[in-house]
Design a protein around this nucleic acid. Structure first.
Length: 481
RNA sequence: CGGGGCGUAGCGCAGUCCGGUUAGCGCGCCUGGUUCGGGACCAGGAGGUCGGAGGUUCAAAUCCUCUCGCCCCGACCA
């Protein structure tokens, strides 16, 4: 009866719960360097699954992977005025190497627009070279003041797509397409409902014409930006001289996009589906989808049970599932249950003497509920259970989001909402920076997105939630990660 | 950088106010045995520069000074 690794309940302290859940699942550990983190095998396995799913989606939309250097000449960053200003405070700079001061300091990439567009300038000559569709998987460094495991660390892993196009419309199409990819990934793989939309000028990427994002509401009613795409216009093309000959024989600058999604998503996964026991992995991103636990007393029982458990595990592996058979001796089944639950394994199959006699396994879902599955239909039964868990997680998250969304908020409601429970607040917006800043000052909430049409309210708000003047666009406010 | 908390065994902590001899407890770990359908039990065992430096003292985990680091909350950000 020894409860050793109880974690802080969400209701008591959400931040503490998050740390406990991440540590209990052994996703990550603190590093000797302030602000950095070690991604442990359990966490990295989730990242690998995210990479596999996204990489396929990127390739299917015509992108190719490449790799650009970690170190960037400092002067590159300075070529785009808004960009350098946006990143200056958080850039780490190498000034000394090889035992001497460098002639020109090298920055450790906070993002790779500059060094990539320097290459693009060499590679692109003709409209026939366009579109150029590149992605890279990389680590980047941004010197953050305050860090949290996965959610904000000094170094993190991400992918960054960089593309060049003949005209504005094609670049816009690309930025929109990749936003749709992120949305689909979030919904279908992460089981995480998202809002899509455009960022306000004050929230957009430094150097971009427009920034789009997918935003998801976490269980503490704060929003996380789960993926972001930028239409960069010709800003970087002009700064780096990325020109091409048009079909008509003229000379023009390319139109660029960039888009990224990071290991932060793992934090989003934890905060979307986790409960007071620990993390819950949606089956499609679960490093272990099914754990098989044999149960027995005597040696004779062990023999019979093990035989069935082995066979079950093997047939599931052959069926394409990620399966762990937990045959550890000297550990009671209950102890194993708690361990795997803490790692978020969506489905546990118990195999005991009674099950062997009935030619079944007993399936316990991480999301609740137990039911037998006949051995004869094991693969199909497990597939159905995992699909139900996947869609159930999405539905639950979606219902939670809807329950924590308010529409047509007034100034008083916005203030009260953000001072209290939080959540998504839809309301009218006059579009003025002045109001945006006043709201942020008063409520700590920011405009997460100006939502795309499908997410907007049936009747557009008439007046700005803050100043009461006519609304020009609907906005979604929330506190954010 | 401001406010709050904390550094004692792998993890979680007690001991610190009021200095005193071999620094303790739970979990975990190792060995053997009995167990095993929701966190097992018994017996034996390993494991410590008390974050670091300096000082006070016959004597410091404990008192003083400095310092390093971590977590949480706030100002910046994916």
């Amino acid at each position: 009866m020894s409860q050793e690794q109880g974690i802080t309940p969400r209701a008591k302290d959400f931040s503490a719960w998050y740390n406990d859940a991440v540590m209990r699942a052994e996703l990550a550990d603190y590093s000797p360097v302030r602000g950095c983190m070690v991604i442990r095998p359990n966490g990295y396995a989730i990242w690998e699954l995210i990479q596999q799913a996204l990489d396929r989606m990127f390739k299917d939309t015509g992108h190719r992977n490449a790799y650009f250097p970690l170190l960037i000449p400092q002067s590159f960053l300075a070529k785009e005025a808004e960009h350098v200003e946006g990143f200056a405070p958080e850039v780490a700079v190498v000034t000394r190497a090889g035992g001497k001061e460098l002639d020109e300091p090298l920055v450790i990439r906070p993002t790779s627009e500059t060094i990539i567009y320097d290459s693009f300038a060499k590679w692109i000559h003709s409209y026939r070279d366009l579109p150029l569709l590149i992605n890279q998987w990389a680590n980047i460094v941004r010197w953050e003041m305050r860090t949290r495991l996965f959610l904000r660390t000094t170094e993190f892993l991400w992918q960054e797509g960089h593309t060049a196009h003949v005209d504005e419309a094609d670049a816009e199409r690309e930025a929109r397409q990749m936003l749709a990819v992120y949305r689909r990934f979030a919904e279908e793989w992460m089981a995480m409902p998202v809002l899509t939309g455009v960022k306000t000028d004050s929230e957009k990427f430094a150097g971009a014409l427009r920034t789009y994002a997918v935003e998801a509401l976490m269980q503490d009613n704060k929003s996380i930006q789960a993926g972001t795409t930028h239409h960069l216009g010709q800003n970087f093309a002009k700064a780096f001289g990325v020109q091409f000959q048009t079909a008509a024989g003229g000379l023009d600058y390319v139109w660029n996009t960039s888009w990224g999604l990071s290991t932060r998503l793992i934090g989003g996964l934890v905060m979307t589906h986790g409960d007071d026991v620990g993390i819950v992995c949606p089956p499609r991103l679960a490093p272990v989808q099914v754990v098989v636990v044999p149960i027995y007393r005597s040696d004779a029982e062990r023999t019979a049970v093990s035989e069935v458990a082995d066979r079950a595990a093997k047939s599931l592996r052959d069926g394409g599932f990620r399966v762990e058979l937990d045959a550890r001796e000297g550990m009671k089944p209950g102890a194993k249950y708690y361990e795997w639950e803490g790692q978020g394994v969506p489905l546990r199959l118990e195999v005991g003497p009674k099950d062997v006699a009935k030619e079944q396994v007993f399936a316990a879902r991480r999301t609740g509920g137990k039911a037998p599955i006949p051995l004869a239909g094991l693969v199909d039964g497990v597939r159905a259970a995992l699909e139900e868990i996947q869609s159930g997680l999405y539905q639950a998250a979606r219902e939670r989001r809807e329950a924590n969304t308010r529409r047509g908020v007034s100034r008083d409601e916005l203030v009260a909402l953000m001072a209290g429970p939080g959540g998504f607040a839809f309301g009218g917006f006059c579009g003025r920076l002045e109001c945006e800043l006043a709201i942020k000052e008063a409520t700590k909430a920011t405009v997460r997105v100006l939502p795309d049409e499908e997410f907007r309210s049936p009747t557009p708000p008439a007046t700005c939630a803050w100043c009461g003047s006519p609304s020009v666009v609907e906005a979604v406010w929330a506190k954010a990660y």
